[in-house]
Nucleic acid binder design. Structure first.
Lengths: 350, 350
DNA sequence: GTGAAAGCGCTAACAT
DNA sequence: ATGTTAGCGCTTTCAC
């Protein structure tokens, strides 16, 4: 009875959900080979006979076949995605790194999955959790400070982890970046070399941006060692020219002896330069100003800004190289460190 | 005989490839429910009984379960990823949009997959092809100009497409942005209102950046209609303060009557301001300068820069909203347009 | 060099 | 409310 009903229904015409129109099987049929040959061709074309190869190539072209990477990733248990987690891509530093990394990874057909922590460790933790759901080929994190849970998740997973933009602390696996304290120290030494005796550090958002804080600490330490007077002023808002102008204006009132300022980045420094201009403070004669970042305007302003150029681009390239090497089986030694250094650009403002 | 051998081998101990340690089945076993109940719980917790729910929650927590989104995406034929393709994230405009979009999408647990075209249509085509491989929940493209192949791929796919940062041309589906020609026209009208009679447009990379070109065209058209003299100078390099300074310096030599310049963006304008300062050209008395973008320094410089603020943030928010609405079944009418407008900020430089 | 077969971990009908 | 079942489209042994 039941059987009778069933046969009456004739293949219950499975209601199909939205699905990819052209699959590998379609290509295989068209090329008169098996799906596994198509798969092989896609991954190692040289392993397939010339005739089969060209038939497959032709079929792919004709059918406009687009492989389904989710199926591939599922079957292979690892996807062609790299998860990059930065504080914010609005920050030119990280935008540069993300951009150069994307460019380098693309050549290997790797996709970038982007996440922003907004300088929040809880947010980072959540982003890492989600990132792991994609079985990415690698996870790239910014900085060395992470929540315990983040560390735990990452160390329990087989996914390679690269930390960027910071060196000098405990690493999860590999780190690519530079020492921010050294940046601060180099700034202090530079100002002292220029004969400055009353130094000041102008910082923004240092409660959240621990790398800015490290630069500040390095500055203080080096100035202290050299025995010159040194002080810090900061503002909780993100770095901007407005904040820089505000800080400098206040500094000139409360610390009139100041003859050299270093800023946590070039936005702050630019604002400081603008304010000096408005106040009629001669730069560099009366006051030397320097920044960090070598942003696009830093060489063009009046006077041109002495600054420290980090290696944002190189960080991205090196991180991408590590990932690609890892996929090819060339793993770096555990806990390895790539120091991308930085460059002091001595211009007119100091 | 064969049977004998088999039984001797005891479950041929399938050599397992690298794989996710904890699966949904593990969670189900631990919680003493079926996998589908776990799946249901994950997607609609309210559809599961309280007791089962808490058992599952407990198991997930205890086992540290991380769902495999590739498997989910494969089964559901649509992933929780949104592909965003912009010319470059180094460009502050697109960084802003990407950032605000990422923030909005994250709340819905959607991932951003990022691609850079570097203003190259072939590259975009390739990125779109790869994007489709992920069965994303949506694809976001920058601008309305795309190769025929890109259009074809997209219209043959079921993936919703949103074009951002440009209106006024043929759309694939939905577009969110504003009219760049209107920006140019508004600039021209503003300068004319300020009594300027010899206008000049300073542009960078206009051969590649067609939106900059549209702003320029709008400027020329509006100036022409008003009957004032107008000219254009451009440089093929990407916009920077250096390029702006160079263009302004040349302009003052070859077009000494110029009394109002509009720049294709604020980097150019800033460089122009710097150069005016060096040349001793009074801004705005002798020359009015305006930009486009309202970048972070634009309100802080000397004199503060009159500029036009695009709605990069809003574009990202609106695009994200469209995507989320679409996933909830609320589709916008075909070919719909969201005009996010722009704002002219009249400051001291004009 | 090529094909058959067995999943990868999950979702979504459908049945209970 | 929960379980059963049948795939999603691909990769990867393993035979041939």
């Amino acid at each position: 009875m039941a059987d009778h009903l069933k046969s009456g229904l004739e293949r219950p015409q499975r209601r199909r959900r939205k699905m990819q129109s052209i699959t590998m099987t379609d290509v295989a049929e068209h090329a008169k080979v098996s799906p596994s040959t198509v798969s092989l061709y896609l991954r190692r074309p040289e392993a397939v006979s010339a005739s089969a190869g060209s038939a497959i190539a032709h079929a792919i072209d004709k059918l406009n076949y687009v492989p389904n990477l989710m199926a591939g990733g599922l079957a292979a248990a690892s996807s062609r995605a790299v998860s990059i987690i930065v504080p914010s891509v609005r920050n030119a530093f990280f935008a540069e790194t993300v951009s150069s990394m994307q460019t380098a990874l693309r050549r290997e057909r790797l996709q970038v999955i982007l996440g922003h922590t907004e300088y929040d460790e809880r947010e980072e933790e959540d982003l890492v959790r989600t990132a792991l759901s994609w079985s990415p080929a690698a996870i790239v994190l910014t900085g060395l400070a992470h929540s315990d849970a983040t560390r735990r998740m990452l160390s329990h997973s087989p996914v390679p982890v690269i930390e960027i933009w910071e060196l000098g602390g405990p690493q999860i696996e590999t780190a690519v970046g530079f020492h921010h304290a050294e940046v601060g120290a180099a700034s202090a030494r530079h100002l002292i070399q220029q004969g400055r005796q009353h130094l000041l550090y102008l910082g923004a958002r240092m409660h959240e941006d621990q790398r800015a804080r490290q630069r500040c600490d390095g500055f203080l330490a080096a100035a202290g060692e050299a025995g010159v007077s040194v002080d810090v002023m900061q503002h909780p808002a993100p770095a901007s020219a407005d904040v820089g102008a505000m800080l400098l204006s206040e500094a000139m009132q409360t610390r009139p002896l100041t003859d050299g300022v270093a800023c946590s980045n070039d936005h702050i420094a630019l604002g400081a330069l603008f304010e000096c201009e408005r106040l009629g403070i001669a730069v560099p004669d009366r006051l030397a100003v320097m920044g960090f970042g070598d942003l696009s305007f830093s060489g063009a302003c009046n006077p041109s800004l002495t600054t420290i150029r980090p290696s944002g681009d190189l960080i991205g390239k090196e991180a991408a190289r590590l990932i690609i090497d890892h996929m090819a089986g060339r793993e770096p030694p555990a806990q390895s460190v790539i120091d991308t250094r930085f460059t002091l650009l001595h211009r007119r403002s100091s």
